[in-house]
Design a protein around this nucleic acid. Structure first.
Lengths: 175, 175
DNA sequence: CTTTCGATGTCAGTTGCTGACATCGACCAC
DNA sequence: GTGGTCGATGTCAGCAACTGACATCGAAAG
């Protein structure tokens, strides 16, 4: 994963081959593909963990809390996990932003996050389309907040930016 | 485009080669790639048009209308465009839902729609992160509404489903 | 010491995708 | 009409992503 991020940063995603990544990591190309499904997946290893955090937070929320509040709290918790990996997250974001192929994969992971959240909400009794829309709103706040965090040089905590984004949406919905 | 959708439906996305698509369309594989950037892009030809409709609707909205209302109206208009292509949209949705690679591309198009909407809002004076969040909410309503339309057999207009989705979000935001 | 097993290497093959060059037909200038 | 330009297509060679099949090897287990 380090080898891949380094190479993608140096030569760009399209400018590096999977063989090069494998070589820098000291293994064969074949071995690379035993660990990662494709050339993109190297940069998305932690996404499963994030999903668990989000779903866990939603499940542990007080029984009759408002859905949107539950999800907002969940994504803020999830965002906090990234606070530690600040440097890695920053370098990674630069590469992803520069590469449509990687953006696609990132969007797929966010969609997976969204589906997981919607499912957890439905298990709490939230009906459709409310469950889906609340999940979408939460993940959107995460994305927008995360982007602002990266853009501002990470001087404030991610969770702050995320909360700011969800607050903005609530405000607009009230107009 | 017809050749591709037919083949993807019959044998699945992974089970068909670009050479086969080209052959069924009566051209060479090389010619296929002169018209479409890759194997996925065949199913996403109209997305540019949708973006124009959405941005146009946002730009034409009354000066000081509420941003979320503007975007909701915009995506409803956009959805209405699909009403005519009902059959194609349905068959296409089945294939996309069955294929992660195609889902990725679809998500990228939705992200492009979202960015365009956010840009149009900013030009109307909406600040960040409100512009981004409102755009996200609008596109989310489009997505959720469209999915419901497909799932229910398209007996009610798409725009109805889309409005229902955005109404659900407003309701949740008010709690 | 032997066996078992998970991780890795090796190799050959398919397919998505690209660059370079040739061809062909429509339209235009003269 | 002749010649020329141009856009769309065909042909061909080649790279890189990915996969399946089989071999190897080292460590843990018995």
């Amino acid at each position: 994963m380090r080898a891949a991020l380094d190479l993608y940063s140096e030569r760009g995603f399209d400018g590096t081959t999977t063989a090069e990544i494998a070589a820098r990591a000291g293994v064969t190309e074949r071995t690379y593909f035993r660990h990662f499904a494709d050339k993109r997946e190297v940069l998305f290893d932690g996404s499963h963990l994030l999903e668990e955090v989000l779903v866990g937070a939603i499940e542990d929320a007080p029984e009759n809390a408002a859905p949107l509040g539950v999800v907002d709290a969940g994504v803020a918790t999830m965002a906090a996990v990234l606070e530690d990996r600040r440097e890695f997250a920053g370098r990674r974001a630069v590469v992803v932003d520069a590469t449509p192929h990687l953006q696609e994969r990132e969007l797929l992971k966010l969609a997976s996050l969204r589906d997981a959240a919607a499912g957890a909400l439905r298990r709490r009794g939230v009906a459709e389309p409310a469950a889906s829309m609340v999940a979408e709103a939460g993940v959107a706040a995460f994305r927008v907040g995360f982007e602002a965090w990266i853009a501002t040089g990470q001087d404030r905590p991610v969770a702050d930016h995320v909360r700011e984004a969800s607050a903005a949406l609530r405000e607009q919905a009230a107009r």
